[in-house]
Design a protein around this nucleic acid. Sequence first.
RNA 1: GCCCCCAUAGUUCAAUGGAUAGAACGCGGGCCUCCGGAGCCCGAGAUGUAGGUUCGAUUCCUACUGGGGGCACCA
Length: 570
Amino acid sequence: MTVTNILQDKIKKYWQVDGFVIEPAKMQFGDLTVNVAFILAKQRKLPPLQVAREIADKLSQDKELADIFSRIEAVQPGYVNFYFSDKYLKNILADIISGSFGLNMGQGKKIVIEYSSPNTNKPLHLGHLRNDALGMALANILQSLGFEVIKTSVINDRGIHIMQSLLAYLKWGEGKTPDQVGKKGDQFVGDFYVRFHQEAEKDPTLKEEAAELLRRWEQGDQEIRQIWHQLNQWVFQGWHETYDLYGSEFDKWYYESELYDKGKEIIKQAAEKGIVKQRSDGAYVIDLSELGLGSRESGEKVLLRADGTTVYITQDIYLAIKRYEDFNFDKMIYVVASEQEYHFKVLFAILDILGTGLSDKLFHFSYGMVNLPEGKMKSRQGKVVDADELISQMIDLAKVEIERRSPNLPTIEKEENAKAIALSAIKYWFLRANPRSTLTFDPKKSLDFEGDTGPYLLYSYVRLRSILRKAGWKEKVKIEQDLPEAERNLLRKMARWPFVLQHFMDGYNINLICLFLNELASDFNSYYHSHPVLQSDEEIKKLRLQLIAAGSSLLKKGLKMLNIKTVERM
RNA sequence: GCCCCCAUAGUUCAAUGGAUAGAACGCGGGCCUCCGGAGCCCGAGAUGUAGGUUCGAUUCCUACUGGGGGCACCA
């Protein structure tokens, strides 16, 4: 039973009211605040402040609440504010240190996430880094809330663009392998994709040749399938290196080459029920005109072409149903860029009309594009920020800083730290932003090691750990003494953690977790700047060390949720 | 033409219909005989425009302006 639940029940019981919100207050107004007086005031036609006073008085007399709150007061214009008691704060201190302080709301519930979902004709780019940062953070956060999380990815390994890189390899690859030319497999294949488009500008017949290859691939032509398979293996290998470095993990891969033909039965069965109709030319279509989602002319969406082949959405309909059979999930989150919002609207609507009952369980986690200062990325022209290149540039930058700031670290630790610092910068930069907004990525300016950044959080953690190390701190002890103001305020801040997680769940607001962690780090940085720990008297030192331990524990836990690795020294 | 998203300091980003709109970078000024200066402290600086709903609007609604995305028998 969380504090919110207890409070909610009391208020509902005493005043038979609903629709009020309990939320963290600004620090100067207490720890929690409730707006119930505004609601009751309207019903009773009384001034809100008068009602708030009545509520505060009544709740102040409640014995159970007296343990949790030291003060409950009504203030203008009609809020009821709650201040946590020292007893409550000291209680949660032990939980924070042991890592058990948080929110457990997902038990017995299963969430499937789809993210990353790359194309096998090219390496991962900047967009994937945003996608993967969001996908992995969602997965880790939900997992820590008690959900069972399954991470999936759908690999786009077929289609005309795949055949284009394959054709370029046949023509100009000279039968070489990535190892022979010393390239990562995905980079190797990606270069042929760029080459195809360069050559196709000069020679338009290449497009027809690629189309012919696709026909042969679909007919199961052995030779083509074999080369295609080889190219895919190289690409997968390259990706895995990047994924390992970036920290992306997957439980299950789906391959479009195994799915693209599926879903025909579903459509035909729907046609028998009259939900889908067959046009005079033989194509199967669904009428979406009432929802305004169909094509511009007919208001219909094609699900099977006249020749009986499937379209992209047919595969997605099939996959949604298949994945539900595979996992029986409570929720399925698609982490896919905002350019596909329309697609998912249509997909969910169709699943609804088909009567699958799935649409309520499906959620499109949409995020904005990542642009360059000079405009949009264009992979055909090779005008992308390559993920590998960006990561390695960031690691080099981090190395320079490490050499400058801490030249005496062992070499191995320098290497590891450079990785951790660089990756924290990239991930945090994506995660702290509103996912919906388009980000402009300026390689020179956007990623910084100072201020509200990943490295700042790592640094803050390192300093907390350093104090504990020097103090020889080992374990949590019970705090008997009263809390001085500065210490109480730190605990009050940490006490907000479950509400941050609660608020995260409102709309998977990852950036709120970033915001909280930054505030937490910042609070600690100012705190020990003015409150020496190691030099203080035994009693107060004991308390301060407990707080430092709690802060480092919470910071580490939060960073882990964001899929950001901490280091012990830097 | 139609639909969706975004618009907050010079810049990159916060803010749950409420209380004094928060940070960071940059700018100006301080702080290393004191647990780590990737830090701390102080200062200047913002809700695109016009209406509406509300006791109260950055937040909701309408129009406009500017930016992004989409409207395939492509994926």
